[in-house]
């Protein structure tokens, strides 16, 4: 049986990949995708913990996480589309007007 810590470490790695993706990519779509990646990393931890502890709570939590991830993606994409339709660009460096 693989000890549960390995799953946590894997989840941590996934999470950092997501964060790096968030920071590096200039493109809003990729930003949203990296957020999805982070949420999946969290799912991994929940399932691993639930498997180790033998209770089902973790898995219930995963369902909620997935639905919430979907909502965020939906809202995020909606905003990106309205931004594109109005201003023709979805690059993040366009979003610099609010600063200081």
């Amino acid at each position: 049986m693989v000890p549960v810590e390995h799953y946590f470490v894997l989840a941590l790695i996934l999470f950092t990949i997501g964060v790096v993706g968030l920071v590096v990519r200039r493109h809003l779509i990729f930003v949203l995708m990296s957020i999805e990646l982070m949420l999946n990393a969290v799912n991994l931890v929940f399932i691993a913990a639930s498997r180790a502890l033998g209770t089902l709570d973790g898995q219930i939590m995963v369902f909620f996480v997935i639905t919430v991830a979907a909502c965020e993606a939906a809202v995020g994409l909606a905003m990106v589309i309205s931004l594109y339709r109005r201003y023709g660009t979805i690059a993040t460096d366009f979003l610099r007007t609010l600063r200081g």
Binding site: V4, F8, A11, F15, G18, V19, L22, L28, V31, L32, I35, M38, L39, A41, V42, V45, F46, A48, A49, A52, L53, D57, G58, M61, V65, V68, E72, V75, G76, M79, V80, S82, L83, R86, Y87, L95, T97, L98
Partner: peptide, 30 residues
């Protein structure tokens, strides 16, 4: 233009924070 920009920034950073929160909950649960 400003409200969209604000909204997107809030969304991106907000969901990043939600991921953090979940991570925390997950470990606490574990």
């Amino acid at each position: 233009r400003f409200s969209l920009e604000g909204g997107i920034k809030y969304l991106v950073l907000g969901s990043f924070a939600t991921a953090l929160l979940l991570f925390g909950f997950a470990f606490l649960y574990a």
